[in-house]
């Protein structure tokens, strides 16, 4: 009996559609037994493959704990995950979709702040004169913290956001934000501006494999079904 390959695909959004497209381009047709809401799917003619639809963040974690063998997710989410998780997985392919940058954005009216060095100075002034630390709202605390620290900004406080981060400065929940953006439109619409050197990381969709699974014969075979882009 062949071992089952468990593959994680994002359960919604543009990323899900684009990944399913990659499957069909490679003649792998997905079907679900219980309709559109079914969180499991199979691949026609491949009985040993099981597809599980999950949150893109969770795909990374499930790869690390071994419940998935292969997963499709964003490079940003992979780099945001903790080091112990990253040690257990490998990026196999990167795709030309899901392209977006994680950036640091400030209120547009802060015209005196153009670079992260300016921001560092503002953070320092806030700390010295008002005994406050600049608040940075983000869904990416690890990458943001690392980036700010590497650029000399040490006096800040992270505000963990679950969504609609762009609204935080206007609602008074934070002074600045870091968020993922592809066109910058949502940032501009919310009166935010990206710092000149405020790009934290460039992201794209990836195929990721659990290190534990990488040597399994049928996994290698499956990966070969997806030619290089």
């Amino acid at each position: 009996m062949k071992l089952m390959i468990n593959i994680g695909i994002p359960s919604k959004g543009r990323l899900k559609k684009d990944i399913i497209k990659v499957f069909s381009q490679n003649k792998l047709h997905l079907f679900s037994e219980r309709g559109k809401r079914d969180l499991f799917a199979f691949v026609k003619k491949y009985k040993d493959i099981r597809i599980i639809y999950l949150h893109a963040r969770e795909i990374i974690e499930r790869l690390a704990d071994g419940s998935l063998d292969i997963g499709f997710s964003g490079y940003d989410l992979l780099k945001e995950s903790n080091v112990n998780i990253q040690k257990k997985i490998n990026v196999i392919k990167k795709y030309n979709f899901g392209l977006a940058d994680l950036v640091l954005a400030i209120p547009s009216q802060w015209i005196d702040v153009q670079t992260v060095a300016d921001l560092e100075e503002i953070a320092f002034i806030l700390k010295e004169k008002k005994n406050q630390r600049i608040r940075v709202a983000t869904k990416y605390p690890n990458l943001t913290k690392e980036f700010l620290y590497s650029k000399g900004v040490t006096q800040f406080k992270l505000v963990y956001s679950l969504g609609a981060t762009e609204a935080y400065p206007l609602s008074g929940s934070s002074e600045i934000i870091s968020d993922i953006t592809s066109t910058g439109e949502t940032l501009r619409a919310n009166n935010l501006r990206i710092l000149i050197d405020g790009k934290i990381i460039s992201s794209q969709a990836c195929m990721i494999v659990a290190k534990k699974s990488v040597k399994k014969k049928n996994i290698k075979k499956f990966i070969k079904l997806f030619p290089k882009e």
Binding site: I106, Q109, W110, I111, D112, I134, E175, I176
Partner: peptide, 24 residues
């Protein structure tokens, strides 16, 4: 350009923790 516009606004207005006066 934005600077000139902001000069005519109320200087004590706070934008994300900083007053317009401070920014200008």
């Amino acid at each position: 350009k934005r600077y000139s516009k902001m000069l005519s606004e109320k200087q004590q207005t706070i934008i994300a923790g900083r007053s317009i006066q401070e920014i200008l």
